[in-house]
Amino acid sequence: MKPRMHLNDDLTELYDRILRIGSLVEDALRKSVVALSTDDEELAREVVIGDLEIDRLRNDLEDFATKVIALEQPVATDLRELITSTKIAGELERIGDHARHIARLVNKLPQPVMNIALPTIERMSVIGIGMVHDSLTAFVEEDELKAREVAKQDDKMDEEHRALYRQLVDLMRDHPEWIAHGVDLLFLNRFLERLGDHVTNMCECVIFGKSGEHVELNK
C-alpha cells in the first residue's frame, strides 16, 4: 500500500475539481464573446446562470480543502498545494465573473461601436482562454517553466488593452453620443485585461506550490 493513500486521493480529487471549474470558466469566456459578436441573448443568459455554478463549485472546493487540512493535517508540498488550489479556484471564480460581465453587454451596444471593438475583444479572449488553459496545465503538471511562459502572455493582453483603450477614447471624442457605450466597452476592455492578471496570479501560485517561493511575475 502506498503511504498516505487517502491524502493522495484527496489531492487528486482537488485537482479534478480545479480542472472542472477551469473548463467551465474557459467555456463561459468563449460563450460570452460569441454571444457578444452574434447578439445571442440566450447564450448570454447561459453564461450568467452558469456563473452561479462556478461560484458554487468554488465554495465546495474551499470546504473540501478545509476538510482535508483538518482531517489529514498535510505539511510541506501537500499543504502548499492545498492552499494553492484554493487560491487558484478564487482566481478562476473572478475570471468567471468577468465572463458574466461581458455577457451582460450582449445586445446593449450599437453595431458601429461593436465593429470597432470586436476584433480586439476576440483576440484578447483567444489569448485569455489560452492562458487559462495553459496555466491549469502548468498547475496539474507542476511545471514551473510553463507557468512562467504563460504569465509572459499577459504582455500581449496589456498591449491589446492599451490599443483598444486609445481607440475607444478616440471614438468617444469623435462621437459624444456614444460615450455611454464607450464607457461600457472601456469596462469590458478592463475585464479582459484583468483576466490576464488573474492568470498571472495563478501562475505565481503554481510556482509557490512547487517551490514555496513567492514570485512576482510581470511586474
Binding site: A76, T77, R80, G212
Partner: peptide, 13 residues
C-alpha cells in the same frame, strides 16, 4: 512548510 531535503519532506508528510 518547505524543507530543503526530499527525505525530510517524505518523512514529515
Amino acid at each position: 512548510f518547505s524543507p530543503r531535503d526530499p527525505k525530510t519532506e517524505a518523512y514529515i508528510s
